[in-house]
């Protein structure tokens, strides 16, 4: 069991039926696994399906096809009690700290809700646990009696993290947890994520569009484009030697906060925009914007293959 990944995603699909015989393939055949104690970053531009992937993995959406194995058990086949057991081990932190906290509940109640549902602690112990969680995320005990509107964005995100931690999960899915925050506060929250991982041995799936931030927090990164993974590698390797043309252009598009280095850089500026996922291009989804597109790319989808040990990419050039 020790070597088995905590999460295995096998050919996961999530299609939305839009009516009029139109099908939006938001997630179309994802394959990856996450090891225990690791942070896996999922990046891509808006509309690439990264958030849908996160929500389907935790079963906020029912999958159209494929499997998600958590500790070897298929999440999408679970029923009743098993499902509740799953949610104890897998929690989510949402993007918008303004919309994801109930404005009518005190912070103490918000954090304690999961503890009550799972019957973990009660009475004095519960209160003690809530206080402990507040301290863990850098708030203090007095905050338990206050309401969400009394807090800033960064503090609210800390409350969201405390709520996710309340029932001692093994695995946390963080869906764009910092994109609504200011730069200096983003750094605070990212540091908190790293600290909590060390203290509690957590595993993260970290979904974001900011590749520089994802690179900072993740051990391995998956890059998505139009519902498919185009590249998976360790974060250092992805940065040093990106194999897929999309990853290369994504890295190149990020402006460096360093004027001199910025001037000397050769940049790839992609033409056009991401095509509609309702009517994706044939073959490789990236071919319409790819600087290296060949006739072969329109004909068949390149296989997702292991180019180097641990470094996967889907491109006909490789």
């Amino acid at each position: 069991m020790a070597d088995r990944p905590i999460l295995e995603v096998q050919n996961l699909q999530k299609h939305f039926n839009l009516g009029n015989n139109k099908i939006l393939k938001a997630v179309d055949g994802l394959n990856f696994s996450i090891n225990r104690g690791e942070t896996f970053g999922l990046v891509g531009e808006s509309g690439c399906g990264k958030s849908t992937a996160g929500r389907t993995i935790i079963r906020l959406y029912e999958a159209t096809g494929g499997k998600v194995l958590f500790n070897g058990e298929d999440i999408h086949a679970m029923q009743g009690k098993d499902r509740q057991k799953l949610t104890r081990n897998m929690q989510m932190v949402f993007q918008d700290p303004y919309a994801s906290l109930n404005p009518r509940m005190t912070v103490g109640k918000i954090i304690a809700e999961g503890i009550e549902i799972n019957g973990l602690y009660s009475g004095k112990q519960k209160k003690e646990r809530v206080n402990q969680l507040l301290r863990d995320v850098g708030l203090n005990e007095e905050h338990a009696g206050r309401f969400p509107h009394e807090f800033s964005g960064g503090q609210r995100q800390r409350i969201g993290i405390a709520r996710a931690l309340a029932i001692e999960p093994q695995f946390i899915i963080a869906d764009e947890p910092i994109s609504a925050l200011d730069v200096s506060v983003q750094a605070q929250v990212v540091n908190l994520f790293k600290k909590l991982q060390k203290e509690h041995g957590l595993t993260y799936l970290f979904i974001a569009h900011d590749l520089a931030m994802v690179k900072h927090i993740s051990d391995r990164i998956g890059v998505m484009y139009l519902g498919k993974l185009v590249e998976v590698a360790t974060s250092d390797k992805l940065n040093a030697k990106p194999l897929h043309p999309y990853t290369q252009s994504l890295l190149s598009a990020i402006p460096l906060p360093d004027p001199e280095a910025q001037k000397q850089r050769q940049r790839i500026i992609l033409q056009g925009e991401i095509p509609s996922p309702v009517n994706p291009p044939s073959g490789c989804p990236f071919r319409t914007r790819c600087p290296h597109a060949m006739p072969e790319c329109a004909a068949t989808m390149p296989p997702f293959k292991e180019v180097e040990p641990g470094h996967f990419a889907a491109c006909h050039l490789l």
Partner: peptide
């Protein structure tokens, strides 16, 4: 507090 692609991951980000 801005993460850079060429920065060291093991270091903590400086925050205000």
């Amino acid at each position: 507090s801005v993460p850079r692609l060429d920065s060291d991951n093991s270091k903590e980000l400086e925050s205000i």
